[in-house]
């Protein structure tokens, strides 16, 4: 997206530039740019003691809106919802004023990169963490909104998925503030843009699909038929197929429900889905179990005999020595 002029100048701040807070008098030295979007630019900066992230914008209202969200997150105790907020201020420079806020710097690759590097087995674990966080967020009356891999960073160790960029975070029941087409229920013609739990869960399903299609894909017919068609083409999505379908169709009322299904999908499978196989494998299982029990018993007997034999041998030896 093209940026307007003042935002463009904000994305050109060179390393070493010092941002002075007008109200709180804190200073931040720019290290490098971390990212930019429609509503501002995020920089990695250094304050007096540590590295922190700083989001700056020419639009004070978007900064204050995001600060409001982050502030309400800090009221949720011990949660990993969004980065912690450290400072909010204005920067006056060459006759212009920009607003910024300073937050915790969350270091790590985004969800998609992480899974590509570490292997698909990480997807399930990260989904469990994400859904647990979303559950808390929803309970507090918020909907994350702009959920996508770029906004999900994997931090650690210990490995922990963290949501960054609360620009899309919306009070439940209102219109979603910011979204990205591929992850947006409205774009696929599968529901409104009113913020509810299911809006986020739809996006989670799209993130799962995204892991098999890193380049994303465009809408053709839209709707559940196109999306599930794409899902079925990728064997690596088999495990999550029914979960994806439920989330896309809005069948999960809460993140907790979806989490339970992910957890169930991750359990080791003892039964095959095919009915005939299932019976066969189950009887096999029984037989194998029984055999194992028998050998165990036999082994036990042998052990006992051996111990008794050894002990009596030692005793005889002792007696023999005593007699001599």
């Amino acid at each position: 997206m093209m940026m307007n002029n003042s935002l463009k100048s904000l994305s050109k701040l060179s390393p070493g530039t010092v941002i002075h807070g007008k109200w709180h008098r804190n200073q931040y030295t720019i290290i490098k740019e971390l990212g930019n979007g429609a509503n501002g630019v995020v920089y990695l900066v250094r304050d007096s003691s540590r590295q922190v992230a700083l989001k700056i914008s020419d639009n004070p209202s978007s900064i204050i809106s995001e600060v409001n969200v982050l502030k309400s997150f800090t009221k949720v105790q011990g949660s990993a919802l969004g980065p912690s907020l450290f400072d909010v201020d204005d920067w006056e420079t060459v006759g212009k004023q920009f607003s910024f806020y300073v937050m915790e710097f969350i270091k790590g690759p985004n969800l998609l990169t992480f899974i590509q590097q570490k292997g698909p087995e990480w997807l399930g674990v990260l989904l469990l963490q994400l859904l647990a966080d979303l559950d808390v967020l929803h309970e507090k009356g918020w909907v994350f909104g702009d959920l996508k891999p770029e906004n999900l960073l994997v931090n650690g160790p210990p490995i922990r998925v963290r949501c960054i960029d609360v620009g899309g975070t919306t009070i439940k029941g209102r219109a979603i503030k910011e979204f990205t087409e591929f992850y947006d229920r409205g774009y696929w013609g599968m529901g409104s843009r009113k913020a509810d739990e299911r809006y986020d869960l739809f996006a989670v399903a799209m993130v799962i699909i995204n892991t098999a299609y890193p380049g994303r894909f465009n809408k053709t017919t839209g709707g559940i038929s196109q999306l599930m068609g794409m899902v079925k083409q990728k064997p690596e999505l088999n495990l999550y197929q029914s979960i994806i379908k439920n989330a896309l169709s809005g069948n999960y009322q809460t993140a907790g429900e979806m989490r339970r299904d992910v957890l169930a999908a991750l359990q080791p499978r003892k039964q095959k889905s095919d009915a005939g196989n299932q019976v066969k494998s189950r009887s096999q299982l029984h037989r194998n179990g029984a055999k194992r029990n028998v050998t165990k018993k036999k082994g036990g007997l042998f052990e006992t005999a051996l111990i008794i034999l050894t002990l009596s041998f030692l005793y005889f030896f002792y007696i023999y020595v005593q007699i001599l």
Binding site: W23, V67, V88, R174, A175
Partner: peptide
């Protein structure tokens, strides 16, 4: 204007603007 107020005081004003926008 809103920008002339310290950042701490802007939060509630912004909530009003958000509410109106809705």
């Amino acid at each position: 204007k809103m920008e002339d107020l310290p950042p701490e005081k802007r939060g509630e004003i912004m909530e009003v603007v958000d509410e109106l926008g809705e």
